[in-house]
């Protein structure tokens, strides 16, 4: 018993070093990102999002001040770090953007069809939920990621998300795990994190919502999931759907305990 413990302790520093060993290209990218993070244009979307959150808007001319992101009506601080979570009023698990869309529908009177028509940012247009999500996310900067798993539906969402992550299908016979379940994969010069490794799992959440310098657009996790499905040649997932929330539950719960740094910047 005692001997095993000593061995485990001796092995630990080596394991730690191996997990930290980084590709020099990735290290350069991280340096580049650190410089850019000082003046992240995501802040412009944050300002816009705050205005959209506080101003009365929509057919019902209401603000989102009564929107419950899981910590009580109107509580924004720290809410993003604890999403996705189960919401009793809709009896399902919702991620941040799905909840914002829900609030825009129920409180402000927007229609889902209208919001889901062009839900992602383009060069000329940033949809309101994107700016709002950026604002909400920024209010959790520096907090620990803590997506709850207490409710049975939260655990069911995790299980569904996990299954989806490893589900191989489509013309390429691909799964999320084809790219993100193995070590040392990359696309062009971008190393791909292996989300099944605890130390790397946080990279599914960190930096999102993110300002993408290519084109200068703001993107959220809803977009990221949608685009991953597209890259796998899967059918498009429904915007703010339960399926996307489930996949995000799996990815976020795996990242629990890490510090969330707020909206990020991407190449």
């Amino acid at each position: 018993m005692r001997r095993a413990l000593v061995l485990a302790l001796a092995a630990a520093p080596w394991l730690h070093a191996a997990a930290q060993a980084e590709d020099p290209v990735a290290a350069e990218f991280d340096k580049f990102r650190a410089v850019l993070e000082q003046d992240n244009p995501a802040e412009l979307f944050e300002v816009k999002g705050e205005e959209l959150w506080t101003k009365p808007r929509g057919p019902k001319n209401a603000s989102l001040a009564a929107c419950d992101l899981g910590l009580g009506p109107g509580v924004v601080k720290g809410a993003y770090a604890q999403l996705p979570r189960y919401f009793a009023d809709v009896d399902r698990v919702m991620d941040a953007e799905a909840r914002i869309v829900h609030c825009m529908i129920t409180l402000q009177g927007y229609s889902y069809a209208e919001l889901a028509k062009q839900p992602f940012s383009s060069l000329t247009r940033t949809p309101d939920p994107v700016s709002i999500a950026t604002y909400v996310a920024a209010q959790s900067a520096g907090m620990k990621i803590a997506a709850p798993q207490a409710h049975p539906k939260e655990r069911a969402a995790y299980a569904a998300g996990q299954e989806m992550f490893f589900y191989r299908a489509g013309p390429y016979d691909f799964s999320c795990a084809s790219c993100h379940g193995v070590d040392d994969k990359r696309i062009r010069t971008q190393p791909l994190p292996n989300f099944t490794r605890p130390a790397q799992a946080v990279r599914a959440v960190q930096g999102w919502p993110g300002y993408r310098m290519t084109g200068g657009v703001m993107h959220t996790l809803q977009w990221r999931m949608n685009d991953c499905f597209r890259q796998q040649r899967f059918p498009e997932p429904g915007y703010a759907s339960e399926m996307v929330s489930a996949l995000l539950t799996y990815l976020t719960v795996n990242a629990n305990g890490h510090e969330y740094r707020g909206p990020g910047i991407k190449r």
Binding site: D39, P41, L44, Y211, M213, G215, G216
Partner: peptide, 8 residues
């Protein structure tokens, strides 16, 4: 100069 520029 880039879109959404930064000046320091």
């Amino acid at each position: 100069i880039s879109r959404n520029p930064v000046f320091a």
